[in-house]
Simulated scan of single mutants.
Amino acid sequence: MRKNSLKNTRINGEVQRALAEIIRGGIKDPRISPLTSVVSVEVSPDLKTCKAWISVLGEEEALKSTLAGLKSASGYIKNQLAKEINLRNTPEITFIMDQSIAYGVNMSKLIDEVNKDGSKEEE
């Protein structure tokens, strides 16, 4: 199976949807922030490993505690994923922090500030 085949793309989307549901509703760990989202998922062609990019809205401490909570719950997450998605192999999940959403929010704030300052100068 090629890396970007249609089947692999479909599996990536299904695993991403299932992971988001499991993280949102299945894990009771208080370390995991409720503002956690699964940005992207990449399952290897042999279905042995999976990289999941996770984004957490909040300060640095929330990022670290959420990542620690997800790593400690990885066995439970893999078990739930196996129940939800019928794959030949259930992949080992590696969680990676993705700062793109936080970066976008920060850039939006900076742009709004510049626009606000520019409109004051025109008056």
Rank of each mutant, 00 (worst) to 15 (best):
N4K: 12
S5T: 12
L6P: 02
L6E: 15
L6S: 13
N8T: 14
N8Q: 15
N8D: 11
N8S: 14
N8G: 08
R10Y: 08
R10P: 00
I11M: 07
N12Y: 07
G13W: 01
E14C: 01
E14M: 13
E14K: 11
V15T: 07
V15E: 02
V15K: 00
A18K: 00
L19A: 06
I23T: 03
R24P: 00
G25I: 00
G25V: 00
G26R: 01
G26F: 02
G26T: 02
I27A: 04
P30H: 01
P30N: 08
R31W: 04
S33R: 01
L35T: 08
T36E: 02
T36F: 02
S37V: 13
S37K: 05
S40A: 14
P45K: 12
D46N: 15
L47A: 02
L47H: 05
L47S: 07
K48H: 12
K48N: 11
I54G: 03
I54S: 09
S55E: 07
V56A: 05
L57P: 05
G58A: 07
E59F: 06
E60Q: 13
E60N: 08
A62Q: 13
A62G: 02
L63Q: 13
S65T: 11
A68M: 09
G69P: 05
G69R: 06
G69W: 06
G69D: 08
L70A: 08
L70R: 04
K71H: 12
S74H: 06
S74I: 06
I77V: 14
I77S: 03
Q80C: 09
L81Y: 09
L81A: 13
A82G: 15
K83W: 01
K83R: 13
E84V: 01
E84C: 01
L87M: 15
L87S: 10
N89A: 10
N89D: 05
T90N: 06
T90R: 03
P91D: 03
E92S: 12
E92F: 10
E92P: 00
I93Y: 00
T94P: 00
T94W: 03
F95V: 03
M97Y: 15
D98V: 09
D98H: 10
Q99R: 14
I101M: 09
G104W: 06
G104K: 12
G104P: 02
V105K: 14
V105F: 09
V105A: 14
N106H: 10
M107H: 09
S108M: 11
I111D: 12
E113L: 07
E113Q: 14
E113G: 01
N115L: 15
K116P: 00
G118W: 01
G118N: 14
S119L: 06
S119I: 03
S119H: 06
K120R: 13
E121C: 00
E122G: 06
